[in-house]
Amino acid sequence: MSGFNKVVNSYEEAMAGLEDGMTVIAGGFGLCGIPENLIKQIRTMGTKDLTIVSNNCGIDGFGLGILLVDRQIKKMISSYVGENALFEQQLLAGELEVELTPQGTLAEKMRAGGAGIPAFYTATGYGTPVGDGKEVREFNGRHYIMEESITGDFAIVKGWKADTYGNVVYRDTAQNFNPMAATAGKITVVEVEEIVEPGELNPSEIHTPGIYVNRVIKGTFEKRIEQRTVRQG
C-alpha cells in the first residue's frame, strides 16, 4: 500500500489481523448489502468467540449464518434473528448469546460509536424489557433511556463502487447499515463490485468518505434474494 491507496488483492489480506474474541460490525439488512465474501473469509479463517454486531444473522448456509456452523459466534447484537434454524438451535442450547436491540437504536449505536459519542438518550425501549437496568432521564416531560454506542475491532462493509482511496458509494437499499458500520471499525474493510480511480466518483455523491476506510477489495457477489416478490408485468 502507498499513500491513500487502500486496495488489497486477496481476502486473506482484507481480513488480516482478525483474532479470536474480537467484535465485528457488519453492514447489511437481511441478505441485502451484506459483505458476503468477507464473511466467507471469516469462516475460512475459523476465528472463534466473535461478537457480531449486525441487524440480522443471515440464513442457514448464507451470510452470517455460515459462521454458526463451526460455532464461531459467541454473541450476536441484532434487532431481528428469525430466519435461521441453526441460530435457534444454538440459542436454545445456550451456546449463543443474543442481545436484541431495536433497529433504530442499533443504527444509532454504530453511528455514535463512529462519531466519538459514547452514549445517547432515546425514547425507544423505555418501559420495555430493552430499558431494564438502563439509566432513565426525563427531558421536556418525556422519558428516555441511555444507550451506549458500539465500536468494533473490525467493520465489514459491502459497497457498490469505491475508488482506490476508499471513498465508497452504495447502491439502492443495499446501503442500509453499511455507512454506519464503516465509521465504527478500528479496521474497516469494504468489499465492492467495482474499484475506480480517484476522481471518477463525484465528490458530492460519496456516501462514505475514505477517511473511515482502511482496506478495499473487489469481489464478485451472489446477492441472494430472501423474499422474491413480483407483480404481473
Binding site: 441485502c32 439502492d172 423474499q227 413480483v230 404481473q232
Partner: peptide
C-alpha cells in the same frame, strides 16, 4: 416485474 427484480432493492419485510 420479473424483469425488474433487483437484489439491492428490498423493503423492510425483505421483499423485492
Amino acid at each position: 416485474t420479473e424483469d425488474e427484480i433487483d437484489a439491492d432493492m428490498i423493503n423492510a419485510g425483505k421483499q423485492t
